[in-house]
Design a protein around this nucleic acid. Sequence first.
DNA 1: GATCCCCCTTACTAATAGGTAAGTACCGCA
DNA 2: TGCGGTACTTACCTATTAGTAAGGGGGATC
Lengths: 123, 123
Amino acid sequence: MAKASRRGPYICGIEAALDVVSGKWKGQILWELDVHGVRRFAELRRGLPGVSEKMLTQHLREMEEDGLVHREVHAEVPPRVEYSLTGHGRALNQALGPLGAWGVERMRREGSETAGVAEPSHG
Amino acid sequence: MAKASRRGPYICGIEAALDVVSGKWKGQILWELDVHGVRRFAELRRGLPGVSEKMLTQHLREMEEDGLVHREVHAEVPPRVEYSLTGHGRALNQALGPLGAWGVERMRREGSETAGVAEPSHG
DNA sequence: GATCCCCCTTACTAATAGGTAAGTACCGCA
DNA sequence: TGCGGTACTTACCTATTAGTAAGGGGGATC
């Protein structure tokens, strides 16, 4: 629904992987979940400054469909929903490690504004 | 020009890297160039079935700006332009390796239509 | 009892990525 | 003369993605 072109026949693995992480916040969601293990919706929201509830929900749903995140709803009041990475999600994060390292290199090369921002471990 | 949000302040390396490979054909361009070493515009075009000249030019220009590809114009008639990967481009391809492997795994899991398609080496 | 928090959903709108088609300038070939 | 090939550029249009704003149902807090 969200994307018509998703899950299409891929030519190579890169495509299949990029399809799953393409989305403005997905990389960060993956990172948050990797760092914290388990996060609730509102925590995630606070951890991703600027994200709208719509986008967060949408991305989380897509990532759940893609088997990257596990969504656990506790039938309580107030409702509590916990998100965590699945094995595949953690594997993706691992696979993203070298790419992250390359990105950090690039930021360094460009003298990007890295000031005061903690560098992700991602691996 | 092409993207307003590019080269912005990144939170993590993943973002910086994804920014550079996000684009419908960039992964494949990287792959083509990695496999063949040097390619001309028309060769690249034939290697990427479905790409339009506009998109190919645009992506190639962005990748040149990003320091991933080297563009060499030979002042001949007819014009000859050769594209190849820079060191950074090759490094990116290396970094993309694990991600590609993950993608291949995912395709396998989903029983995706991989039939008859050569699997990229990517690493 | 009004308001806040929880976790979303829906509708509407803006921005951007990508596709289509045509044009450019030159040459070789038939 | 006219077509095909070289490597693009430009204009226009649509599809997809993201942002804004609002609602909703229930309980706790002020």
